[in-house]
């Protein structure tokens, strides 16, 4: 193009680079098959701050009917939205094992990747504005919600 374009572009680069990893969407990449090994697990970064993974986590949260107890806005049994921001690996353990045993078998039943994604979603939840959570929930209202869901055409 021309010199101006290049200069304007260079000025933008650091600004945009920060967002790059959050925007990454690697379909068909190798999916994690194990729980986080600890706070330093390198996979945490791939999930915790990634828009796509967080969004997928939100969908599975609905699909598995987590909202039955926790509410889609996470204001149920455990008030997840207002809590402090938990670490991803702590959330992973909480989902996989369950605090009170309600979903103690999830580690065996839910594939690891989906727990990663749900943990990422919960990790982000307290940072989302309530209006935004509500807006997403309204857009996804027709999606499967737990075992009793019959379809959007009821």
């Amino acid at each position: 193009m021309n010199a101006r374009g290049a200069i304007a572009g260079l000025a933008l680069i650091p600004f945009l680079l920060a967002g790059c990893s959050r925007e990454a969407r690697q379909l068909a990449s190798d999916q994690p098959q194990t729980a986080p090994s600890g706070p330093a697990d390198p996979r945490t970064a791939r999930y915790a701050a990634n828009f796509y993974q967080v969004s997928q986590g939100g969908r599975y949260f609905t699909w598995y009917g987590c909202g039955d107890c926790h509410g889609r806005l996470a204001r149920g049994a455990a008030n997840l939205a207002n809590g402090s921001r938990h670490a991803v690996e702590a959330l992973y353990t909480a989902i996989a094992a369950g605090q009170s045993g309600a979903h103690s078998d999830y580690a065996a039943r839910v594939p690891a990747e989906q727990i990663w994604q749900m943990a990422a979603y919960l990790h982000d939840l307290s940072r989302h504005e309530p209006a935004r959570n509500r807006r997403n929930a309204l857009d996804q209202q027709g999606e499967p919600q737990g075992n009793r869901w019959q379809g959007p055409l009821q």
């Binding site: 304007a8 933008l12 680069i13 945009l16 790059c20 925007e23 990454a24």
Partner: peptide
């Protein structure tokens, strides 16, 4: 217009 071009193609260069 050039801003619009960069708006689409710079993020593309960055993978967004």
């Amino acid at each position: 217009y050039l801003g619009g071009v960069l708006m689409l193609w710079l993020p593309h260069a960055l993978g967004i």
